[in-house]
């Protein structure tokens, strides 16, 4: 096994194409993913706004499950919010002995112990630093050559833990996109906020923020994302139709994986202009 896999709740529902494409791309790259068995919700944004202790306990339970079956194995997380919660819990467990004791007392009746030994890594961290670009380049044809792609990172995979990229002007997707033969849009809005959950409760916020982002991407043929919440907002508030794909969908298409295996029929935006460049 190469990585433990924590899909998170969105990838079982509104972001199921992100789950499919992560698994399909990992297979094509020869990365073995093993789903953490019996994983539960990380608490999302809600837990921190309701109960501070639960906001550590909920992600820590998943870290403890990982430690129990596969100590030391990196946990790969595609959802930026899950990644942030798991990583925050890991930092807390490692640096705050009082909180670590409290959490372990709560987990103990389930025969779980957490020390924070498994690393938590966002999908983009793994793809950009564990050698994926060379493999994509080796298998990509010339189909994507004249496309311009806007890499959109969002917030929570970059901040507050800037572990693998610049937290304000991120570039980690550049090499992966160029490996497909496509060009990268030069812009500075890849790390600006889409409104996240405030766009759900205040649609006006979503319209304004996503409108600015998509205006900045107007010279691109498609936008690629690495977060279910960003993907949802960028697809929901489009003034003009533009294809928005998850990064593993785009890389998979360039490598010749089938659009069905990558879940390309499930996007809410019309992604056909990109899909037709890939395999039939």
């Amino acid at each position: 096994m190469d990585y433990l896999y924590y899909p998170g709740c969105s990838l079982e529902g509104t972001a199921m194409e992100y789950d499919r494409s992560c698994r399909a791309l990992s297979g094509a790259l020869g990365m073995a993913l093993v789903e953490i068995s019996d994983w539960t919700c990380c608490g999302a944004t809600a837990a921190r706004c309701v109960d501070e202790l639960l906001s550590v306990v909920l992600p820590a339970r998943n870290l403890a499950l990982a430690e129990k079956t596969d100590p030391g194995i990196d946990i790969l997380v595609p959802c930026s919010a899950c990644y942030l919660n798991l990583e925050t819990a890991r930092e807390t467990i490692r640096t705050d002995p009082v909180m670590r004791n409290r959490v372990n007392q709560i987990l103990a009746p389930d025969n779980l112990v957490v020390t924070g030994s498994n690393r938590v890594r966002h999908l983009l961290d793994v793809l950009s630093r564990d050698g994926a670009a060379d493999q994509v380049a080796a298998r990509a044809g010339t189909n994507m050559a004249d496309l311009v792609i806007a890499p959109y990172y969002g917030c929570q995979c970059l901040r507050p833990f800037h572990e693998f990229d610049d937290p304000e002007l991120p570039r980690s997707m550049d090499r992966l996109i160029r490996a497909t033969g496509a060009q990268v849009l030069e812009w500075d809005m890849g790390g600006t906020c889409c409104g996240a959950a405030t766009a759900t409760t205040r649609p006006g916020v979503g319209q304004a923020l996503v409108g600015q982002i998509l205006a900045g991407a107007k010279d691109a043929d498609a936008v690629v994302t690495v977060c279910p919440m960003c993907q949802m907002n960028l697809e929901r508030f489009q003034p003009e139709p533009v294809p928005v794909l998850y990064l593993p969908q785009f890389l998979g298409l360039a490598m010749g994986l089938s659009s069905k295996a990558l879940g390309c029929g499930l996007n809410l935006s019309d992604v056909r202009p990109v899909v037709i460049r890939g395999a039939p």
Binding site: P160, P167, G195, T198, R202
Partner: peptide, 11 residues
Amino acid sequence: ILCASCYMCTL
């Protein structure tokens, strides 16, 4: 209430 948790201010 309007904080979207983008962490730019924290950064």
